[in-house]
Write a protein that binds this DNA or RNA. Sequence first.
DNA 1: AAGGCGGGGGC
DNA 2: GCCCCAGCCTT
Length: 352
Amino acid sequence: MRSGEKTAHAVSTRFDGLPAALLDWYARHARDLPWRIGPGERARGVTPDPYRVWLAEIMLQQTTVPHAARYFHAFTETWPTVEDLAGADDGDVMAAWAGLGYYARARNLLKCARAVAEAGAWPKTEDALRSLPGIGAYTAGAVAALAFGERAPAVDGNVDRVFARLLAAKGPWKEEKARIAALVRALVPADRPGEFAEALMDLGATICTPKRPNCLLCPVRDWCAAHGEGEVERYPVKPEKKARPQRRGEVYAVFRGGDVLVERRPDRGLLGGMLALPTTEWLESGMAERPGWADGGDAIGEVRHVFTHFELRLTVKRLTLADAPSGFEWMSADEAGEAFPSVFRKALKLAR
DNA sequence: AAGGCGGGGGC
DNA sequence: GCCCCAGCCTT
């Protein structure tokens, strides 16, 4: 027997009964989330609004449920349909996303909404969804399964962890993830792909947690190789992370009455497209050049902020100017504070 | 294939 | 402090 056949056959019987056991558990323990319809409604043929499913999935990328939920309510209140969002002002959307992070998501959110509004309808297959801005492998599968009932897998960090444990996956993490993706695709039940996706995510979020998993309550424990080994928390085995370097710079809180000086950051790169305070470059060593108009300000303190790949210490200087330097403009400090990403919110709060 | 890209909460 | 989280895009 060729190894491919052997693997495929082993997979097909190894997890017999797991989807049914998982769905049975989900019928009793599904989380009630704002973008979901319950198992009961789904059984009566109700399907969720693709716009709400998509919006939630984008917000949930690398983001916790409680954090995303607050933004989900605000967005659906302000822009109830994808056509509403497509017609929104860019700055309004970026301001509404402020504080949620990974701002390329918001830029792609608008691109995607406008593409869908222009087309007049959502693409309804995994492959077609995958080609839209901001929709990758996970989100395409999730929207296809949840909103359109396609037999597609939704493999996120939760599902990777669950299957790393079921398989006691000891190999290189990249290879294990590819193996898991293929396995989950093969296991999706044709009649209930959306509930299967939600069930796996709920299992990962509430039972098969990163720390102290609750194996006693796990509906798929009988299939779990890691539980058999008695070392569930050992999995998944991920590559080591690199240390975060330190960067430093200055940021300027420049006031004119109740207004503060702001700029719009370029669309690419860190905090791209976001409203910002004037700042020097942020360097690991050496002193960044200070703009001439910023000489003479009072250093009033320091803010620290952690980004994905570096830690930042910013000296905050406060000053007043009569005229806005080229490239900057005045905005009410209250309004600016709402539209800033977190690092500039911290600096403004310190300076006020 | 690897690295850039936010932010908050749990422990 | 360190960990992780409903990942995607660019190079």
